[in-house]
Amino acid sequence: MSKNILITGASSGLGEGMAREFAAKGYNLALCARRVERLEALRDELLQKHPGIKVVLKALDVLDYDKVFEVFREFRHELGSLDRIIVNAGMGKGQPLGTGYFWANRQTAETNFVAALAQCEAAMEIFRDQNNGHLVMISSMSAMRGMPKNLTTYAATKAGVAALAEGLRSEMLGKPIKISTLYPGYIRSEINEKVKNTPFMVDTETGCRLLVKAIEKETPSACVPAWPWVAVGFLMRNLPLGLVKKLG
């Protein structure tokens, strides 16, 4: 039986790339994002390549919290069930604290954490009712340690997402609801397209293929790609803060 997979933030970047990977595996997709025209183009592409799958779309700004619940419930109704929900929508805007950009840091905090909380609530409501499901949280390698300057708020939100997922995982141990946290390293996407000369950067297609591989294993947590990010994560967690600062 085909799996039904919901992906938020599916109009670009990692969400779009993962949708392509899952479609190639024959899975039905529920895709949502703000930019419906991008979703429609993606749907047409996927159905042309994989005519045996279903692709349903809905406009969603994850900051409209009531709408998050509404859209998730509608997707479940249309597909009959949701087997996996990937909380992917996010943003990378941020500035050093105390420099007059609270509005930007607040937007990042609300989008990456509060909206992720709403998505988790909506997902778990469905999974608890079904008594099965797989919730996937997209965190970041920056969650491993507090990061300086433009990354401070972003890293804090991604650490919050990881802690949220771990709390849920603890609660769901031994139950048919699985929780996975992924920590992407440098994967090229719209969120970092202006960043140049970054070491260990992989292209979007490669990164998304590896993300989907980790998701399919239903692993509790994974750094993606594994090399060099498992080693980098260990160093980030254990090196003196002065050295970690240089990574920011």
Rank of each mutant, 00 (worst) to 15 (best):
L97G: 07
D64A: 01
F127N: 01
A109C: 14
A116P: 03
D64Y: 04
I86H: 02
K49Q: 13
F69R: 13
L57C: 04
A118T: 12
R106M: 07
A115C: 10
L46R: 07
E125L: 03
E45G: 06
F113S: 05
L57M: 02
K67H: 10
A109I: 14
L60E: 05
G98E: 11
A123D: 02
E74I: 07
H50P: 00
F102R: 02
A115H: 11
L117M: 12
L117I: 14
A104F: 07
G92R: 04
R43Q: 15
K93Q: 06
N88W: 09
F127I: 01
F69V: 13
D64L: 05
Q48A: 08
L47E: 04
V56E: 12
L117D: 12
E125H: 12
G100V: 08
F113P: 03
F72W: 13
A115S: 15
F75M: 05
A122T: 10
I85E: 01
I85A: 03
R106C: 06
I126N: 09
R84L: 14
R128H: 08
F75R: 00
F127G: 00
N112A: 14
D44F: 07
V56A: 11
P96A: 05
E110S: 10
R43A: 15
F72R: 14
F113A: 04
W103A: 08
E74C: 05
D66P: 01
C120E: 10
Y101T: 02
L79V: 07
A115V: 10
I85D: 01
V114I: 15
R128F: 00
Y65A: 01
A115N: 09
Q48L: 09
L117Y: 15
F102I: 09
V114S: 14
E121C: 05
A104E: 12
